[in-house]
């Protein structure tokens, strides 16, 4: 069997065995966001206009929350490297028949698959609320690209951070600092058309915005005028981030 695949199976097996509760907890936040925020703001905001299309707030919000699973899932890539370090498995794997690149690729694939599974479950659980979805073939391509490159980008980012910190406590602190701005300064919760210029500028520099917009384009057919740039930026940024993660990881001190 392919080395990456073997490491991937090990990682997923470890994640599920670690705590099924932990995985279940990953479902709680997105469901709360969709149900509570969706209904609460939905009452105050009868409809949202984005990309020239009018829709209910919950319909706008749900794809954004689903795509944010690739960010929260991606963060787990770096954390799981620290789990391996804490229990001595990091060096043990690296004296096995694997390369460092195979190891981190398996970590990113693992979080991508877990993120996809979470996204699918959230979609399934919220589907009764999401009438009005229309997914074309091109839409599926947008969804798959948002998933693939979003996971690659955030997984790689998390690995880069994990190589830069000296303890897993610091890693958690860094994640806690960067997660809220990434999440809230993006198009996940609101359309960017009518927000203040500074927030709009920051959100347009945030790769989560690209992934969210691509996901909405796939699920709702809602296309921003700059979608093709977003696709291009997400692909270039995610591949660059992955290459940087590999470089950083190869130079990691053991």
């Amino acid at each position: 069997m392919n080395s990456i695949l073997k490491l991937l199976v090990r990682d997923i097996r470890g994640s599920f065995l670690m705590s099924p509760l932990f995985l279940a907890s990953m479902l709680v936040s997105p469901l709360i966001y969709i149900f509570v925020l969706g209904f609460a703001f939905g009452g105050a905001i009868p409809s949202v206009v984005a990309g020239g299309i009018s829709m209910s707030y919950i319909l706008f919000l749900a794809p954004g929350i689903i795509v944010s699973q690739f960010l929260t899932g991606g963060v787990y890539a770096g954390a799981s490297i620290w789990f391996d370090k804490r229990f001595g498995m990091f060096e043990q794997i690296l004296v096995g028949p694997f390369t460092k690149t195979q190891y981190i690729t398996s970590k990113i694939l693992s979080v991508a698959l877990q993120g996809l599974a979470m996204a699918f479950l959230v979609l399934l659980l919220t589907s009764p609320l999401l009438s009005g979805l229309s997914v074309s073939f091109l839409g599926i391509l947008y969804i798959v690209a948002a998933w693939m490159f979003g996971s690659l980008l955030f997984g790689s980012l998390s690995i880069i951070i994990s190589t830069a910190v000296k303890t897993d406590e610091v890693l958690n602190v860094v994640f806690n600092i960067i997660m809220p701005p990434l999440l809230f300064l993006s198009s996940v919760f609101y359309p960017l058309e009518n927000v203040p210029a500074l927030i709009r500028a920051l959100a347009l520099a945030n790769p989560l915005t690209y992934a969210a917009d691509m996901f909405r384009a796939g699920m709702l057919g809602l296309q921003t005028s700059y979608l093709s740039y977003e696709v291009l930026l997400l692909v270039v940024e995610s591949v660059s981030m992955f290459l940087l993660a590999v470089k950083r990881f190869k130079g990691i001190k053991i």
């Binding site: 097996r13 470890g14 705590s19 229990f87 001595g88 498995m89 004296v95």
Partner: peptide, 11 residues
């Protein structure tokens, strides 16, 4: 077999 302990702790 490394000097430091190593284990898949949740398995």
């Amino acid at each position: 077999v490394q000097q430091q302990p190593s284990l898949e702790m949740f398995m």
